[in-house]
Nucleic acid binder design. Sequence first.
DNA 1: AGGCCTCGAGTTCC
DNA 2: CTCGAGGCCT
Length: 674
Amino acid sequence: MATGVPEEARERAAKLRDAIRAYRAAYHERDESSISPEALDSLKHELVLLEKQYPSLVTADSPTQTVAGKPLPGLKKVAHAVPQWSLDDAFDEAEIRAFDERVRRMLAKSLPKNAQPTYVCELKIDGAHIILTYEKGSLTVAATRGDGVVGEDVTHTVSTIASIPKELTRPVDLIVEGEIYMSRKGFALLNKEQEKAGKPLFANPRNIVAGSLRQLDPAAAAARPLGAFLYDIEGFSEPVPGSQFLELAALRDLGLPVNPHEVRATTIEEVIAYWKKWQGRARDREDYQIDGIVVKVEDRAQQQALGHTGKGPRYAIAFKFPAEQVTTVVEDISLQVGRTGVLTPVAHLRPVAVAGTMVARATLHNEDFIKEKDIRIGDTVILQKAGDIIPEIVQVLPEFRNGKEKRWAFPKSSPLCGGDGEIERVPGTAAWRCKIAGSFDQQLRKLAHFAGKSALDIDGLGAKTVKLLMEHELVANPDDFFDLTKDELLGLPGFKEKSAQNLIDALAARRSIPLDRLLVGLSIPHVGEETARSIAMHFGSLSALRAAKPAEFSAMHGIGDVVADACTRWFADPENRALLERLAAHLSVMDVKREGGGGPLAGVTVVITGSFESFSREEAEALVRKAGGKPAGSVSKKTGFVLAGEKPGSKLQAAQELGIPVVDEAEFLRRVNP
DNA sequence: AGGCCTCGAGTTCC
DNA sequence: CTCGAGGCCT
């Protein structure tokens, strides 16, 4: 038994080994998987790091030491002429630099005269691995990787793939390795058909590819839109080219499909630049999925000098793109209070990189969410970013539990609520909130909202600064911001001449404010940007609003009993009336014109997704409004058109499904300014 | 009453 | 961005 290894690490490594093995078996042997390949990668990565920290934990049968997969029954077995390796993975810049250093160190030792490596970077296509054998120029066998020694014969299905030639341009013997993929268009089409037929949707193209190849009926596979890229010669009746670059050229020359995007890199910085480039826009333009790049030492003599480990070559590595799904551990659960006093549970996570940023917290929404997913403190969970921004816990992996996990129950009271911390359920909802309003934390949220983007939008006045101001008792209510003096600010830690002046200037710049923005800032329940705008337009001025009778709210279009009641109560409260009076003394509230009508986009609803060259998303919304149109948050049958920029989100897909016209930046500007 | 559609609220990181 | 709930239309 290993010594000096904490019991916890040993136990965790064992759990990781078991789980990875089970997921791999499900995926490779039964074409099914309960977790995504990315989440599985994340578990593997954790095990690699653990084994690196405690080398004595490494076992011969660890998934880090073996190649995934075992041949299936039902298909003919093929013994590979050349054993199939699998590549090591790098997940970030530090790991790829470590690879480069290792290569340079080993080359300096073994090939001192030829020690400077150049690299060939290729795209790593997300599909199914394939090995093709040609004899005298004719395709004779196509095999899956299997366990690396024995694969399955899938010649009958691979022969139906149009881009794979049955005959090469020359009658040579060749064993070549590559990847079969399903085009993204083909995948979307296939899922559309599944949907029409009322069948469950496929999660990702990769699973279908593996399944299609293993179909016993070639016709079923032929119906699937599959493509292929080949990249590695394993056996050749002619001299094998002396470098990876020339090898790709030779494959093209033989009439095989080769991905066109390889480049040569002389430094690791160029490799990283290529990796970054393909993570961005370039990736979305190709009709196949790319999950990283493959980096190979170019020169064959250098490759041979570097050799292989038991698992794979030392001269090549897969440099994966930042995962959009990863696994991590819930270390704690705490509560947060919002500006309305609603209490939200938040998971504190072991920090982990998702889609390029480190994430340490994720919302758990409410009590029911935690119960439904059965999330416990100490649980291993799958995490992803919804819409590429907000982290969410997708799934708990209960097989990682060791009995020390703690169930979490909603507390009976919370110090965040101030006073005796009493809390209550909001009737008819899943939310809990503070019984008494106005605790320090709630007021902090309210004030931050007042200063925030959708309300007064005061530059440099975020939650952190608001907290500081409250702690020093300079600010308790929204109007107090406007009484701040430069001297007061200079007395605070972190404030210098320049920053103090900036805040004073930013406040001055917002003393003149449109009525609707002020309304948003007041935190009236159910009154957000849209409702504030229609209230502002209906009443026209602050004085008209302060004189409003209760019936006037409920008579407005778009305002029902609940919202009207909330407004009436707010404006009847003497404290709120006093606040309005003080604000009115500090601010010049701009009246808002009633509906103008007209404009080139009159009556058109526009949904915006992605980013643009010549304007921001907010500016686009303003342009729509100026043209008489209405910017909306989600696509529906009533949407006039969708304005899509670079990196569009799920709204673009929604538009395509509903047959809503999609418009680009140039066309949008033409429509706004005809 | 049921089924959209739209809006509000909370959300993370740099 | 997503979820849930309010409001309106049928």
